[in-house]
Simulated assay, not measured.
Amino acid sequence: MTTLRFTADLWRWEAQTGWFFVTVGPEASARIREVPRAPRGFGSVRVRATVGATSWTTSVFPDAQRGAYVLPVKQAVRRAEGLGEGDPAQVVLEVLE
């Protein structure tokens, strides 16, 4: 299992203002791409994410504009961890597939 650790700023998706993400850095994104897997919708990759003390299962998605994967951070996580737009989030990702 591949485990990645990084810190990234929380940002709001302009097309859907209720959606927030962190960008997986270039090195971590490259490591995710290296893991062989069956194709999934939208190029998504299943992960177990941890931000602070909160963990959940979700997917990361490739973002061509950023040249990296992005991790959606749901409202319950943002509230539990006291995160707002622009705040740095300490993230641990475990690639599940």
Rank of each mutant, 00 (worst) to 15 (best):
D63R: 13
G86R: 08
P88R: 08
G67E: 15
A89Y: 03
V70R: 07
A80V: 09
E81H: 01
V60Y: 04
P88N: 11
V70D: 07
V73Y: 08
G67H: 14
V73W: 08
R78K: 07
A68H: 11
P72Q: 00
L83R: 02
Q90K: 12
Q65K: 14
L71D: 05
A80L: 11
L71Q: 05
V73G: 10
V77A: 03
Y69P: 11
A89N: 01
V77Q: 01
F61H: 06
R66P: 13
Y69G: 12
D87G: 04
V60A: 02
V77T: 02
A76T: 13
R79F: 02
A89L: 01
V70N: 13
P88A: 03
V73P: 09
P88L: 02
Q75N: 10
A89Q: 01
R66T: 08
A80P: 15
Q90F: 14
R66C: 05
Y69M: 15
P72W: 00
V73K: 06
Q65T: 15
G82T: 00
D63M: 14
D63Q: 13
G84M: 15
D87E: 04
P88F: 06
Q75C: 12
E85A: 06
V60E: 07
L71G: 07
R79G: 09
G82D: 00
A80F: 13
A89W: 03
L83W: 06
D87F: 05
V73C: 12
P62V: 00
Q65L: 13
R79H: 05
A76Q: 09
E85M: 03
R78T: 05
Q90I: 14
L83F: 05
R79M: 06
P88V: 04
R79V: 09
G84I: 14
A68G: 11
G84Q: 13
G86F: 03
R79I: 07
K74M: 09
V70S: 13
Q65R: 12
G67R: 09
L83E: 03
Q75E: 15
G82M: 00
Q75Y: 12
D63L: 08
A64G: 13
V77M: 04
A64T: 14
V77L: 05
A76E: 11
V60R: 01
E85K: 07
V77F: 04
G86I: 03
L71F: 02
V73T: 06
A68E: 09
L71M: 06
Q90H: 15
P72M: 00
K74E: 07
P88H: 09
V60S: 02
K74H: 07
D63C: 15
A80W: 14
K74R: 06
E81D: 01
A76K: 10
Y69N: 10
D63E: 11
R79D: 07
L71I: 05
G82N: 00
D87Q: 07
E81I: 01
V77G: 04
L71P: 11
D87H: 07
L83K: 02
L71K: 05
K74Q: 08
P62K: 03
D87M: 04
Q75L: 13
V60N: 06
E85S: 02
G67C: 15
G82E: 00
F61I: 05
R78H: 03
D63H: 11
G86C: 02
Y69T: 11
F61E: 09
Q90N: 13
A64V: 12
R66F: 00
E85N: 03
L71R: 04
V60K: 03
E85C: 01
P62Q: 01
Q65E: 10
G67Y: 11
G86P: 04
V70A: 11
G67F: 12
